[in-house]
Design a protein around this nucleic acid. Structure first.
Lengths: 136, 136
DNA sequence: AAAAAAATTGTATATTTGTACTATTGTTTT
DNA sequence: AAAACAATAGTACAAATATACAATTTTTTT
């Protein structure tokens, strides 16, 4: 299992999930990241239903509890809202971070990723150059 | 090989591990050598699952961390691929990465990275600025 | 329309997997 | 011999799975 894609046309959204086993990031966290990104980018609208834990689990070829774990954590963060028997939905009020918390968050994310990037033998310059290309 | 309770038998692999305490070579390195040889000789196929750290540890009568240390080093060398909760497997791309593959790898890492970054409302510029500060 | 059954949804628990942290042992260096 | 380091072990933790359960919705039956 290398790259598993899921395009959720069934659920009327355009977000495409993907898991990378070589990323060194737990599956459930990759799912969390992609949902957060989906919301931030506007691909996931408030009130919209996410795929069921089973549907997404099948698409990504993981256990349904792995998806459930991602949903659960986002529910705790008030980003999702779930109801047993009904489904999981994008919640209205995601918790806002303060400026300080945002700054700290950015630093911690960067620290984590530079560790990964450097382990592959890339340099900070490589990253900056690639990011600049990515910008437009 | 007639009848044994070998981990390898259970995991349907064709290689038989053995440790020699008198060899003067650390156990974890002996394990590494035998896996590398198994791959080189074709006894271990790409994508094949290795015994779990516990199973092999029991068989070789060492601590599970000794096996884990061997697996970890081979994972760093991109020879193995491990997923916590699932197992350890022979990696598909055991050879060195070409320039193109390196570039693609960087792109894939950065895609995951920007996914997270943007989900928190940061911009690419925020990241570039922070990276520049981090550089020296 | 109401009740019952079936299907669909998320949840809980136990087991298996690798990982992290600490302590101990053994070897090498000084 | 003492110090420093590598190798190994003990223990607790985290990720992913299998399986069974509970809540809700949908369908069928009456």
């Amino acid at each position: 299992m290398y790259y598993c894609f899921s395009t959720l046309y069934l659920y009327d959204t355009m977000i495409k999930f993907h898991l990378d086993p070589k990323a060194g990031i737990p599956f459930y966290r990759q799912i969390i990241d992609q949902i957060r990104f989906g919301i931030a980018s506007g691909a996931l609208a408030v009130g919209e239903q996410l795929p069921t834990v089973r549907a997404l689990a099948v698409e990504l070829k993981v256990n349904l509890n792995t998806v459930a774990k991602a949903y659960k954590e986002l529910e705790i963060q008030k980003i999702l809202e779930t109801q047993q028997g009904t489904g999981t939905f994008i919640n209205t009020g995601g918790t806002l971070l303060s400026d300080l918390e945002r700054k700290q968050k950015l630093k911690s994310i960067l620290r984590e990723f530079t560790t990964v990037i450097l382990s592959y033998g890339f340099t900070i310059e490589d990253v900056i150059n690639e990011l600049k290309n990515q910008k437009p």
